[in-house]
Amino acid sequence: MRGLRAPGWVLAFASLVYFFLHAPLLVLVAFSFNDSKFSAGFEGFTFHWYERLLERSDVLEALKMSLIVGLGSTLVSTVLGTLFALGLSRRKFRGRTALESLVYIPVVTPEIVVGISLLLLFVTLGVELGLPTILVAHIAFNISFVVVVVRARLEGMDRSLEEASLILGADEWTTFWRVTVPQLWPGILSGALLAFIMSFDDFVITSMVSGPGSSTLPIVVYGMVRKNIEPSINAISTIILVLTSIFVFAADRLSNTGGSSSR
């Protein structure tokens, strides 16, 4: 006997759930190529809706803004989060339990509360909303996620290699870059990937702390959904789906080559 066995009706039920998970997105993608404005039935293949997107300067601007915000906040939150995780991984010290609980606060706080509280802060301080406020907000919620992912990797890591390196004459700086970072690399990459996707996807928090002229892609897409601009939304959704899939796939390959196991 080989452990769990799934009976036929469970398999059938699970297939239905898989269908429920994937069919809506497949339909969305299919209709981005539909040659009809009132998308009732499929009436022929076209790239027209993609061409229409290229004519919209706000979409391209927003894509650029999303990439800037995503890369910027990922860079900062990955560095701060990795250092934070390394600090937590030291042996017990006063305040560690409190820090560990603190890490989970951003993970459980509803996005709308995060967004509104940051808006309150910026308004109270009289800060103008724009790219800097978006970056500050995204870094603030991303640090925790990086800490959680990197810590998971640190727990399975052999710390005696660092000791060996120090005893054999490398200083802390060299040890960090030549021993700690290579071992930790898959964890750092996974953390960075999670941070980038969270940032690239975020609508709720961004919509609270962005000002005029600093709209990210989700904000423009939200506007399109509200105004029912069709089927251009299908086209932009398809582009977002393809971009994230490529990104997830690439990052997965990268983190698999970086270490013995990625999880």
Binding site: L28, P218, S237
Partner: peptide, 8 residues
């Protein structure tokens, strides 16, 4: 995948 896209 984007939550917004899935909602749409």
């Amino acid at each position: 995948t984007s939550f917004l896209v899935r909602t749409f």
